[in-house]
Structure formats: C-alpha cells, structure tokens
Design a protein around this nucleic acid. Sequence first.
DNA 1: ATTGATGAAC
Length: 548
Amino acid sequence: MLGVSLSCKITNLNQNLLGLLEKCKSMLELKQLHAVVISFGLSQDDPFISKILCFSALSNSGNINYSYRVFSQLSRPTIFNWNTIIRGYSNSKLPIYSLSIFLKMLRLGVAPDYFTYPFIVKASARLLNQEIGVSVHAHIIQTGHESDRFIQNSLIHMYASCGNIMWAQKVFDSIQGKNLVSWNSILDGYAKCGEMVMAHKVFESMSEKDVRSWSSLIDGYVKAGEYREAMSVFEKMRAVGPKANEVTMVSVSCACAHLGALEKGKMIHKYIVDSGLLVTLVLQTSLVDMYAKCGAIEEALLVFRGVSKSQTDVLIWNAMIGGLATHGLVEESLNLFKEMQMVGILPDEVTYLCMLAACAHGGLVKEAWYFFESLNKCGMTPSIEHYACMVDVLARADQLTTAYQFICRMPIEPTASMLGALFSGCINHRNLALAEIVGKKLIELEPNHDGRYIGLSNVYAVDKRWDDARSMREAMERRGVKKSPGFSFVEISGVLHRFIAHDKTHPDSVETYCMLNFVVRQTKFSFYKDNKEKSLKDTSMGDEFFLF
DNA sequence: ATTGATGAAC
C-alpha cells in the first residue's frame, strides 16, 4: 500500500518536474529544478537531464558552459545529448567547441547521425574556416550523408560564408529536389559574396520566395553599398512581396543610414511600429545608428533611452556613443561612456575607438591618452584604427611632432589615411616643413590619389615655392592622376539632391551658393574671434584650396 | 531535435 502511494507520488513529482522544466524561463529557475532533480537522487540518464541540457544549451537565456558541465557528468550520453551540446556550441561565441566535441565523439566510437552534421557544418561556417569545412564535408561523404538535403543546404551556406561561392554553387547543383531553403541559401551566398548580378538572377528565377529571399537580396545590396537599389527592392517587396520582418528592417534602416535619408528613415521607423514587428535589440541598434547618421541625434537618443538598461549590450552603447562623438557632442559622449560602465557593460575596442573620435572632436589630448592606455590595460590590442585616431587627436591639437614620433614608434606600418590626418594637421597648423615630409611619403604610398598632390602643391604655394608647386601639379598630370570630384548629398522632403564642388547645374544653384557664402562668412567670423592670435592672412589659406 | 538572415567604428 505504502509502496503504491510512494510510486504514485514519484510519478506526480516526475510529471510536475517535467512541466516546470518545460516552462523554465531563466538559468536561476533551471538551477533550482536541477537541484531538485539531484536531491531526489533521480537517475542521471532520465528525461530531466535531457531537458536541462536542452534549455541550457539552446535557450536564449541559457548557458552553454553549464550545459557542458551537466553533459560531462553523463555516464552514457545518448546521440540526442551529443547533438544538443554540439548544436549549442555551434550557436555560441565559441563554435570551435562543436568541432572538438564532435571529434571526441568520433574517438569514443559514437556514430554521428544526420542531425549532427548540420550543426558542425554551421560551426565551420561560423568559424569562416574553409579548411575545417572541407574536412567536415569529406567526412560527410565518407559516412554517406552527402545526399541529405538538410546537410547539403548547410554546406551551401558554409562554402558561401567562407567566400567560396563556386563550391557553394556545386553543392547547390548536386541537390536532387531543391527546396526553398536550398534556393535561399544560394541566393544569400551570392549576396554575401557581393555578386549582386548573380544574386538578382537567382532571385528572379525562384518560383517561390519568402521573407528571407527578399531580405537576403536587400541585405546584399546594402552590403555592396548599393543602398538605392536596396531601397527600391524594399519598395517592391512592400508592393508585391511578403510582409517584412525585423531582419528586413535592419537592412533597410542601414540603407537609410548610409544614404543620410532621414525622412525615409522616419517612415521606416513608423512602419516598424505600425506593423507591430518585434523590436529586437539589433533593430533598435540599427535605428539608433540610422538616426545618428542622418543627423537626428535627438531621435537616436529617444530610441536609445527607450531600451531598458538591463537589455542593452555593448553594440547599442557603441552606436549611441559613436553617434554623439561624430555630432561633436563630446561631453555627452564621455558621460555616456561612464554611464555604460555603471550599468556594467564592458567597453570593447570599438567603444575605445568612439571615445578617441570624441576626443579628436573635442581637442581632448589628455583624455585621449587615457583611453589609449586603458585599451592596453584592459588587455586589448590597439588596432590600426586606434593608432589612426590617436594621430588625428594629436594632429588636430597641434602636437605634430608628438604625432610624428607616435607614428614612428608604432609596431605597425602607418596607413595612408593616418598620414593623411597628420598631413592635414600640418597644413592647418602651418607646419610646412613636416607637411612636406609627410606629403611626399603620402604620394609614395598613394601615387594615384589626387588630393595628395594638390595638398602638397598648396603647401609649396603658401611657402611661395612656385616652382615646387608647379612641379607637383605636373607630376600629377604626368602620372595621369585625374582629379575626381567629391559628391555631397542632401535630402529634402525625401528627395535626395547630389552636388559636386563648383556645381552650378542644380535648379536652385543660385540660392544654394548665396546661403553657402553666408555660412562660410559666419564660420570665418566666429573662427577669427576665437583665434585672435592668428593672422587673417594665415587663415585665408583655405580659400586657395581646391581652386585647382 | 536538424538546414537559410540582422546591429556598432574605420
């Protein structure tokens, strides 16, 4: 009698535990349930452990390392358990672990099944390591799994991710009975590799298209820098395609950001809200960036402040901090950096780059050194961009010799853009001797860059070295370097207007120049007021620029 | 239980 009721209770307990595990939301809850499982002395190989493994390996709020610790306690893990852990790591930050666990599995003589392979192919894709991918592919052929459509589709993605679109196409061609995923994978592959003509061709030849097909095409155009094309595909999608999702909108808002199309961007934002799309952190980040790049820093802040702090990550902070920095809102940018650390988000290399950019705008040399050293202290290696930013800070602050020495002491070769920053510094601060050294080096580095010749020629002109000035322009002509016009874009009421320097073809050209002259005069006026120690003659050098 | 997509700086 007692035995019956006990076993009855245990059955109930089992049922309840399973139910609770199904509903589990966080690692905290999971650990509590795990503790119950252990304290009741339930068998290791029971269904609870599998559930615990699944949640901690696969859930968004899971913890793959916890999962692995549980897994490693199992005396006889099932193929399902192996697959769970391999799948978990393939989605993690360390997909290489999928492969080491896979190898361990092989060593122990456990045979992988057709569920295992898509996960390890995905892991190789995420590692962007074709060599590993090829070995995995070879193993798939050896074990006779090469006609599995799931595996083939993941192989297309793997080869395309590694930049080998030819092999991706080969796998695609070999598939008997291609499905939508196969088509989307090859389409996305071409888009990823920047082959938009092919991507478009694939897209057109598809009999069935879903939101991913459209999104891949749009994103491909965005990644290829063809933002207008991306926008027009999106318009077409709205007219004749499926409903866009949050992934589509990330690409579309990115296109708006690069076009500086604020009105369109606002419409996109409205569309997102109106259509009740899931507003993910990724989407919020791209909206912050879009508003910042379109000059609407207040709107960017509004989106940013709408995200609850506990939901944020380093990317959205970087987008906001970087946006403030490029708007010259240096103080705000520094404050946000402090706030970010108070919230407990660790800055990364990009954060420091944003901070250095802020310092460059604010002329904050001391702070820049502080950030540059923090970067090293936190165990990060400064990249070429960090060095370039530092040079920019020093050059703008008239610490030209320090900047020059900084470049000489760098452990890496200076880039042309870095020397370019120093060069502009030399010109702006009238260090003509250093300008000449740097300018010559720049022409050596980039013999086809028109601006370098013109810049150096202008330097000589200021120094009244007319012969040298002329010889620069002659050298430029001799080498067939063409002066390429720079474009400016202005968006008014959703219409994009393009301008070239000295352009008089626009219908509102007269009014535009009128306004421009007014702005230039105002700027100069306030500049002279701030720089009384500098002579008017000196600062008028800007006028001589680009008259060439 | 499986495959295909998205965000930050230059």
